[in-house]
Write a protein that binds this DNA or RNA. Structure first.
Length: 729
RNA sequence: GCCCCGGUAGCUCAGUGGAUAGAGCAGCGGCCUUCUAAGCCGUUGGUCGGAGGUUCGAGUCCUCUCCGGGGCGCCA
């Protein structure tokens, strides 16, 4: 908020320089408001003079030969501004600015009237309309074949906070969970069979005959305790009758059960979704089949028995295109032999127009390939197996098509994925690009050229040699310039509309040693167990609900402390420590302390300073002797507190821009620290000095509002009081 | 082989292309008759893995390189 104020002051100062003819009217960059080296250097700084000196000099203006001269000119104009208390030029050309106490007071006043929610959403409506977007954020999205793990916990914490931040910044956010429940998938089949197996066992134990005695536990099946629980639940629901139903039935029932379990865990973790989207529903409705057809029509998918692979060199540069024969036995890797030539599969056949000869509509013929190499993927991907089963990626095409075609029609898709999905990014972009081409989304761009381009099946020679503007590998892959450009354009479009955020691995450390997420006995470390364990340690005697809440607070904060795209160690011992070393409590304690102080102040009859009595009146009326007038100069710790507390809207914007939500955790710690410093140096409740008391009460309220707002964004609760337990030793 | 992430104080990590690189913990020394000591103050501690480059200026950007973690399926 104060940054915006200073930005305005800077702009008007520059306008005055322009008006005075000392600056060209344009051609120089917008000034940037930045932090100072430290409190001694003022509240904010700008490096504008250093950045702008070149363009100003180039503009033919001879007056400023170096950054310092330019900085001096800017400083002189700034000094004339009501909102500015002092200006210094320092170092190579920094302009350090200190705002008037009145300016600060006006910020406090505004923030005070907004409250926590208002500060959190301060940017809403202020973000230029052109930058406000409708954003669909998909996160967590695991198979319904087990509980949410502590690994997914990071994605849950990150995704939900990212949504909060984007919304607070002024975007319209849709939270989405994609249920990976495709019954074709290996995982779900294995899970269903595992449950079925245990159900049979339990039926027998309960005295029923085994209706399927020959059924064996599937290889690589699921062995965790929860699998038996699911089986028991299903059996119990129907008194053993269901065991006669077979594995397919158990997939269905177990799936619903697990989704409920997941919902419950996520709920306890403070995560909710607007949409739970079922992958299977896409198959059932036939959308997948339709999408695939359209891909084939556009020539980005086909059944030719060849797989294209790109050999990549440093920097992802394509060094070579390899066409792998998939027809017969695939063996072709003789060590010393020259690189496989384009062989009988003529280059250029990937583009549209030649898909009518093969590919009967019946299943179980040839593998259907998505030619994802056209869009930068390093190898083609299978859409449909030779036995007719569709792959995961096939439903992904339909899923993204659906996301783009809904009534609410998101401008931007954000997909949050775990570290194991890193290799999936290229594929996803290929999927989206293929969809955009297939849907004719490129009609205005290069799409027209592509659809008219001539099939090039006959002359691979001319394709390789004759295509102007194409590198060798491009000639092999695309055949024509038009087709290449269409594919490129589709890919570029995809980059603009789909942002994939990968979060990195978490290592859980217990007693300094890694705690595995999957245990040897087949059990997994569930998020809900993590939350419960921490809660029990941190709030020993409390009721379960309170423990879960405390555990959630700690777990979320820990997950969010580090940048999502960085591996980090989750120190369970530290998380479970109810002490000053635990940053969560440091922050929450600051909030509780503020609440206590405010209560004490109000008890003593103080109310936050009313607008009339703030120093703003006395100082802003005249800019002469701005800091020496009636108003007492603010204590450095007061000033620091106000600056920090009012900076939340700025932090929110930054986070919304680069999705680096961890900064908010850092901000929360910093704000807490700033308050503790303030508390230590500045007494709030003081009967002998009611004016100061009122003013400081106002700062407390703003600090409280900002702290609440950040914690709210992080999904961490802000307790009004924290009572110390008896010392444990 | 290619891709992603990391390498900053003894440890865990911050760090918008800017000024003398910062916190917490650990170590040492202080502060509760006063609004919550889960707090605060002081102090010790650095070839930002290495080498080049870009520029007025690099922990930050580019290239190369060393070390560590992860990923590269007709799994999802």
């Amino acid at each position: 908020m104060l940054r915006a104020l200073l930005a305005a002051a800077l702009r008007s100062a520059l306008d005055r320089l322009v008006a005075a003819g000392r600056l060209p009217a344009s051609g120089w960059p917008e000034p940037e408001v930045m932090d100072t080296k430290g409190p001694a250097h003022g509240d904010f700084a700008t490096n504008w003079a250093m950045v702008a000196v070149k363009s100003v000099a180039a503009g033919g203006e001879g007056a400023f030969r170096n950054p310092r001269e330019l900085a001096e000119a800017l400083a002189a104009e700034l000094r004339a501004d009501d909102r500015v208390a002092s200006v210094e030029v320092a170092g190579p050309g920094f302009v350090n600015v200190r705002l008037t106490d009145g300016a600060l007071a006006s910020g406090v006043e505004e923030a005070g009237s907004l409250g926590a929610e208002g500060i959190r959403d301060w940017n809403r409506g202020r973000l230029p309309e052109s930058e406000q977007r409708r954003i669909n954020v998909e996160f967590v999205s695991v198979n319904p074949n087990g509980p949410i793990t502590i690994g997914s916990g990071r994605g849950a914490a990150y995704g939900s906070t990212l949504c909060n931040v984007l919304a607070a910044a002024g975007h319209e956010v849709h939270r989405e969970y994609y249920i990976n429940d495709g019954v074709n998938s290996e995982q779900m089949r294995l899970f269903g069979e595992s449950v079925y197996y245990y159900a049979l066992q339990q039926a027998v134990q309960a005295g029923f005959d085994n209706p399927d005695p020959g059924f064996r536990f599937p290889e690589g099946g699921y062995k965790g305790d929860y699998v038996q629980e699911v089986a028991a639940w299903i059996v119990e629901c129907s008194a053993g009758q269901d065991a006669t139903e077979g594995p397919e039935y158990f997939v269905e029932r177990a799936k619903d059960f697990m989704i409920d379990i997941q919902k419950e865990a996520l709920d306890a973790f403070g995560v909710s979704f607007d949409t739970w989207f079922s992958e299977e529903s896409l198959h059932v409705s036939g959308v997948v089949a339709r999408c695939i057809e359209s891909l084939e029509e556009k020539g980005v998918a086909d059944r030719r028995p060849v797989r294209t692979k790109l050999k990549l060199g440093k920097g992802g540069k394509v060094e070579e295109v390899v066409f792998e024969d998939q027809a017969g036995a695939v063996e072709e890797d003789e060590p010393g032999s020259p690189p496989p030539t384009p062989s009988s599969f003529s280059p250029g056949t990937n583009h549209p127009g030649n898909n009518e000869e093969g590919a009967p509509e019946t299943q179980s013929t040839q593998t259907l390939w998505l030619r994802s190499t056209l869009f930068g993927d390093d190898m083609d991907r299978v859409l449909q197996r030779a036995d007719g089963r569709l792959t995961y990626i096939a439903s992904d095409v339909a899923y993204h098509a659906d996301k783009f075609n809904r009534p609410e029609n998101a401008d931007l898709l954000i997909t949050v994925l775990g570290p194991d999905h890193h290799g999936y990014i290229e594929r996803l972009h290929a999927v989206v690009a293929a969809h955009l081409i297939a849907e004719g989304g490129l009609r205005k761009a290069e799409g027209a050229g592509a659809s008219e381009s001539e099939p090039n099946t006959t002359s691979q020679q001319s394709a390789i040699q004759g295509a102007p503007g194409l590198a060798d590998w491009e000639a092999q892959l695309y055949g024509t310039l038009e087709w290449r450009d269409a594919c490129r354009a589709a890919r570029a479009l995809s980059e603009g509309r789909l942002k994939v955020q990968i979060f990195q691995l978490v290592r859980f450390l217990k007693d300094g040693k890694p705690a595995p997420m999957r245990k040897r006995d087949g059990n997994i470390y569930a998020l809900i167990d993590l939350v419960r364990e921490i809660g029990q340690k941190v709030k020993p005697g409390a009721p379960e609900e309170e423990q879960l809440k405390a555990g959630k607070d700690v777990a979320r904060f820990f997950y969010l402390m580090r940048h999502h795209d960085t591996t980090f160690d989750f120190d369970l011992d530290l998380a479970e420590r109810q002490s000053d070393e635990n940053p969560v409590f440091y922050v929450q304690y600051a909030h509780a302390r503020i609440c206590s102080v405010i209560a004490k102040a109000e008890e003593a009859g103080f109310t936050a300073a009313a607008p009339q009595s703030t120093p703003s009146e006395s100082t802003s009326t005249s800019h002469l002797g701005k800091n020496e007038g009636v108003a007492p100069e603010l204590h450095p710790k007061e000033r620091a507190l106000v600056l920090k507390a009012l900076d939340l809207p700025y932090e929110v914007l930054r986070c919304a821009e680069d999705y680096g939500v961890n900064r908010l955790a850092t901000y929360a710690i910093e704000l807490a620290r700033t308050y503790h410093h303030f508390y230590d140096a500045c007494r709030v409740v003081d009967q002998a000095d009611p004016e100061t008391s009122r003013r400081r009460l106002g700062y407390c309220k703003v600090a409280q509002a900002s702290l609440r707002a950040v914690l709210d964004l992080l999904g961490v609760s802000a307790p009004d009081r924290m009572d110390r337990e008896a010392p444990t030793g």
